[in-house]
Simulated assay, not measured.
Amino acid sequence: MSSQTKPDRAIAAADGCGVRTTKNGPQSGISREERPMSGLSRRLLLAGVALCCSLPAFAQSWPQRPVTVVVPQPAGNSPDVMCRLITEKLSRTFGQQFVVENRPGAANLVGTQAVARAAPDGYTFLFATSAALVTNPYTFKKLPYDPVKDFIPVAMVAKSNHVLLVNPEVKANTLPELIKLEKSAPGSLSLAVDGARNLSGLIAQAINKSAGTGFVLIPYNTTTNAVQDAISGRIQVTIQSASIAEAFIKAGTLRYLLPLQVPNGSTPCRTFPRLRRCCKASISRAGSCSWPRPVLPLTSSRN
């Protein structure tokens, strides 16, 4: 595209459509037919409208062919589920296919780099994660892309808190109790993460450092495998987005201890409102909030 949409204009366009960022993603493990459209799924689909509204007005003839939306994480992970809900709505709205392409690997680097190198013609989007654009510059000495110079933000589509989950057999009902349990038998509790450089891995390392614990971090390629092992008891603890965790919590197959929020504790996790804030549990540095959003490769006009 020959016109660039700046972040503030993109967000303003979303607001102009009556759309606000969502608090969570879809419920994992529940079929689309079973999810009430008046709830979370409808808000995510409305985020697709925000994306439509944030596109340049001149591009009324766009798209004239299928559009690729790259997700830099495996199928089934929270960003992938959110992206598929939104692209389904976009396909109906524009009468053209929006194809989701999963390109996971190397802490979101593979998919993100692919989009950075794609032709800036408006037919390749990156469904960017906070890891791809925010934390990777601080956890890698060198990146194969520049998160500021190589992309144009299009719209914010979702926000999701992270939740600390345990197998129901774990004898701890609060984070302090879990910390005490781990310290009583160092190295006895395993914690599933989605990689050392991804958000759950960074949160887990912050907990170990802040609380002086020694949770054994086990990296998983997919959320599905991590959750299944937590349910079976193969690992005892995991950190997942609230959107993924909600269905398992309601089913009683996993138990949550607290939501992990932004460090200042200013944004409560509305999915589980009765839980104490992370900062009150003395792990204030372990907060997080992820925010998938579509971005475009920057046009050659920058040169």
Rank of each mutant, 00 (worst) to 15 (best):
S2Q: 11
C17M: 14
C17N: 15
E34N: 09
R35V: 14
R42N: 11
A50V: 04
S54W: 07
L55K: 05
A57W: 14
F58H: 15
F58G: 14
Q60K: 11
S78E: 04
V81F: 00
S91D: 05
R92F: 08
Q96C: 14
A107C: 06
N108I: 03
V115R: 08
A116K: 04
A116P: 00
F125L: 15
A132C: 08
Y138L: 13
T139Y: 13
K142D: 10
K149M: 10
D150L: 05
I152H: 03
V154W: 00
A155L: 01
A158P: 08
A158F: 08
V163R: 01
L164T: 04
T174I: 08
T174R: 06
E177Q: 12
K183E: 08
L191R: 09
A192H: 13
A204Q: 02
Q205W: 01
I207A: 08
K209M: 04
A211C: 02
A211N: 06
T223A: 10
Q228K: 15
D229W: 10
Q236Y: 00
Q240H: 06
I244M: 01
A247R: 05
K250D: 03
T253F: 12
T267M: 11
P268S: 06
R270P: 01
F272L: 08
R276N: 07
R277M: 00
C278D: 02
S282H: 09
R293D: 03
V295H: 09
P297D: 03
L298M: 13
